[in-house]
């Protein structure tokens, strides 16, 4: 008996989430202070996301609770320590730890950042910027290739929030990301808050930036809150703090994005000043209402 289904493009019928992808729903970052609440109440959420490095420990409560929660929800593993934009080679031992974590929890998505976070033997614990030039592009593509080869899966690359630009840059950020996606086949994790923060910080139009991204490769969206400062000229300088509710400007940009991408798995990130769980759940429900609206048939062309 023959079947032609394997001849179909991988994305055929992509409106229905395949097993192995995140559902077209909203999700929350998993915080240890919410482990018990989640298991006791099993909130109606599409997925949870963890920071990979937090779970690279041998045992104890983190693995205990994640195992239980994974039994009820799809999972996204989001790395913050690979240093894909780093000058040096990738840390193979860290890749091994990632591979082990992925084998253990079988997440529906793995993502990392367009940034660097370590130099030499020092880990700086922040997502640091690199110039958008040919040398960085080559390095990032080599690193993404290596990650996808080692993990034997497609990864998503997240657009960064940045506070400085480089005289050495020769490409716009959206074009740089488009080139990485095109050359490596990786997907895009579109952080809408980062888009708003970076475009505000660099005097650019966030909608034009998003429209210039490789939106067809977008597989997940991040939403978060920012803090506000000013630069030396008194212009706004927004800081990606993950410590506040999502701002109205970011909700608006999210709606704009969904109009172009259709519904996508959407994560609410909150990593400091963490409120009670119901507050985060309400933000996730707000996102889900918007992404469900984006799934409805368009009427404007009727």
């Amino acid at each position: 008996m023959t079947t032609v289904s394997h001849l179909l493009p991988k994305d055929a019928g992509a409106a229905v989430p395949r097993a192995g992808t995140l559902p077209l729903r909203s999700g929350l970052g998993l915080k240890p202070e919410h482990f018990r609440t989640i298991l006791d109440t099993l909130p109606d959420l599409g997925f949870f996301e963890i920071h990979a490095e937090n779970y690279m420990v041998d045992g104890g409560p983190f693995h205990h609770y994640l195992t239980l929660i994974r039994g009820h929800y799809p999972l996204s593993i989001h790395g913050v320590g690979l240093s894909i934009g780093g000058e040096g080679p990738l840390d193979e031992a860290h890749l091994d730890r990632l591979a082990a974590l992925i084998a253990r929890y079988e997440p529906q998505s793995f993502s990392e950042h367009l940034a660097w976070s370590s130099h030499g033997d020092v880990f700086l614990n922040d997502l640091l910027p690199a110039p958008y030039d040919a040398a960085t592009l080559q390095r990032v593509c080599d690193h993404v290739d290596r990650v996808q080869e080692r993990l034997r899966r497609r990864m998503l690359l997240e657009n960064p929030a940045t506070y400085v630009e480089f005289a050495a840059s020769t490409m716009a950020e959206a074009d740089f990301i488009g080139a990485v996606v095109q050359r490596t086949g990786c997907g895009l994790l579109l952080d809408v808050n980062n888009a708003h923060v970076s475009c505000t910080n660099h005097g650019r139009d966030a909608r034009a930036f998003i429209a210039a991204l490789p939106l067809a490769a977008t597989a997940q969206i991040h939403l978060a809150g920012f803090a506000q400062d000013v630069d030396a000229a008194g212009d706004p300088l927004l800081i990606d703090s993950h410590g506040a509710p999502i701002a109205q400007a970011v909700w608006d940009l999210y709606r704009y994005t969904l109009q172009r991408t259709g519904p996508l798995p959407t994560l609410i990130e909150r990593d400091s000043d963490i409120p009670p769980f119901p507050v985060l759940l309400a933000e996730a429900q707000q996102a889900e209402a918007l992404l469900l609206a984006a799934a409805e048939p368009r009427t404007e062309y009727a």
Binding site: L124, N125, D126, L128, P131, Y163, V164, E165, F166, A167, A168, N201, H202, G203, R204, D229, D231, A232, A233, D235, L237, I239
Partner: peptide, 22 residues
């Protein structure tokens, strides 16, 4: 060296965001 800001302002306060984050 080599850092810039769109409005031509001193990049040092912007760099300090990274220093502070770290």
């Amino acid at each position: 060296a080599g850092l810039t800001a769109w409005n031509g302002s001193d990049p040092a306060p912007r760099f300090r965001v990274y220093r502070n984050n770290v």
